[in-house]
Amino acid sequence: MVALEARHLTKCYYSTVAAVSDLSFCLQEGEVLGFVGPNGSGKSTTVKMLTGLLEPTHGQVVSRGARIEQDLVHYRERLGYVPEEADLYPFLSGREYLELVGTLRSLPRQSLERKIDAMLDLFSLSAHRHSAIGSYSKGMRQRVLLIAALLHDPALLILDEPLSGLDVTSAMVVKNLIKKLGEQGKAILYCSHVLEVVEKVCGTVIVLQKGRAIAYGPPSELMKTAGQASLEHAFAHLVEGGDSAQTARDIASVMSAA
């Protein structure tokens, strides 16, 4: 069953600049869809439209057969979202922040507290649960965001760079978790620059460039089509990024110049 569908999504800023142009795709239940593209390709704009934070100029986002704007509150009840930046309230503790999110999601008090404590423990944040978020490291903030997105057991997860700032162990946990949740039937949109992870975790990948989807399919097929051995190389082949080796050589020569 289709959990989320983007139909001809287009977003123009200042009436003329198209950040996303005629983008269409489907996210099935139990599918992990990778969303990759160079900086400024329109990933974040698309994610914001999919979460209902941004209204598309044209096209629509459909969930369970209905446009999300028709019942945004109900749609968001089923949605777990990890934004690109962990901009949290520095004056709240990690636990307080999760309590706030859980309460606003109308989760029952007792189960919420149990869940928060268990999640904090599993994400190795127990020792810091009463410390202000202002004193957290980037990785700790990211873990708080992940917990906040998972607390209500959402059917649909939109993860924008969820591994940003995480240490190796936590990143491995999250990677395995994404696979597990996919197996459980949850629909996951995984947005990232780390292509090795996308290759391992996602069943399907969309490559975005200048607001348009330039490739859409399983990673193995993309690699095969591009004639490359890894998704990273396939990506470099697909997008107009120039010769990365040559750019590196240019940087080195500028560094050594007097």
């Binding site: 934070l53 509150v73 968001r76 949605l79 934004p83 930046e85 901009d87 999110v101 606003l104």
Partner: peptide
């Protein structure tokens, strides 16, 4: 502000 938007806007609140 923007931080409130980032933290609250995607939650199921009118």
């Amino acid at each position: 502000d923007r931080r409130d938007h980032a933290n609250l806007a995607h939650l199921p609140i009118l």
